[in-house]
């Protein structure tokens, strides 16, 4: 095992193209270090981002929130303005794990790790976030909903680093996120959903129901067309075009898809009846 510890971004990007092979970037370590001693790390090279200057920023401007490559969930929870501007980010940050995880886990790591259960990705996706990728050659910005290509697969090339996440500021008339884990605190998502509505229309994203966190575009289109629902089953039949849940150690495909549609149905029903139970 070898650790590369650059102190500036240019050096970090250069190390990614060294001929010895591509190192694994590591920031908060909350995914990479799980059962760390049981891993065979002899031939692994890590690119430690913890000393790279300027990666922990959290900049809220009139137009956007910019999240740095090493910005943690806790950083956002503590940044009152950002948390207020993007309440689903704050909510996701609190749901992602206990405080001991929030202080270490990073937004960029949540994307880079590519887990289909990622809670941070869910919130960022319904806010229309984009991922800023940088290499020694170029800098490019990819919409988060086009970033993933499969289970733990993405458009990020080995020489690229996620250097920032840009979340545009829009006026939202609806923002909602729900996570169902095996218990109320610090549980990996069995199914999660987030929805926003702005002048650009509805955005719906779900986690743990597909190989990666995904948008539910069929449902979005129906909502944008003004469709209303009289049963969870109607929501589910639309979602079947958007998601493909699996059965694993944590839950079943049937449970995931059914609960997803029920969460959405009842939340939309509450919208129609503002005086009802919320």
């Amino acid at each position: 095992m070898k650790v590369l510890q650059p102190d500036n971004l240019a050096e970090a990007l250069r190390l990614l193209v060294e001929p010895d092979g591509t190192p694994v970037p590591i920031a908060g370590g909350t995914d990479l270090c799980v059962h760390w001693p049981a891993r065979d790390l002899d031939n692994t090279r890590f690119l430690d981002l913890s000393r790279v200057a300027g990666l922990s920023r959290l900049t809220l401007t009139h137009n956007a929130l910019e999240i740095g490559a090493r910005t943690t969930y806790w950083d956002l929870i503590c940044a009152a303005d950002a948390a207020k501007a993007f309440p689903l980010l704050a909510q996701a940050a609190r749901l992602v794990g206990a405080i001991q995880i929030q202080t270490r886990g990073t937004w960029a790591g949540n994307i880079a790790n590519g887990s289909p259960a990622a809670d941070g990705v869910l919130a960022m996706m319904v806010y229309g976030a984009s991922v800023v990728l940088q290499s020694v050659r170029e800098t490019r910005e990819v919409p988060l909903d086009e970033f993933f290509t499969g289970y733990k697969q993405s458009v990020r090339r080995p020489d690229e680093l996620i250097v920032a996440i840009r979340v545009p500021r829009r006026a939202y008339t609806f923002e909602w996120l729900a996570k169902v884990g095996a218990r109320r605190a610090q549980a990996i998502s069995k199914v999660g959903v987030a929805m926003t509505r702005s002048e650009n229309g509805w955005r719906v994203a779900a986690n743990s129901v597909a190989p990666h966190v995904c948008r539910c575009r069929t449902l979005e289109a129906a909502l944008n067309a003004g469709r209303t629902f009289t049963s969870p089953q109607e929501v589910r039949s639309l979602l079947s075009a958007d998601v493909a849940a699996i059965t694993d150690l944590r839950s079943t495909a049937e449970y995931r898809e059914r609960v997803l549609s029920r969460l959405i149905f009842y939340r939309l029903a509450e919208l129609d009846k503002p005086s009802g139970h919320v």
Binding site: V3, G29, W36, Q100, I101, T103, R104
Partner: peptide
Amino acid sequence: LDGLPVNSCLVPAFQ
């Protein structure tokens, strides 16, 4: 770690 609670099983010593 620098005044914030962390799970030390998830912190590589090199950091």
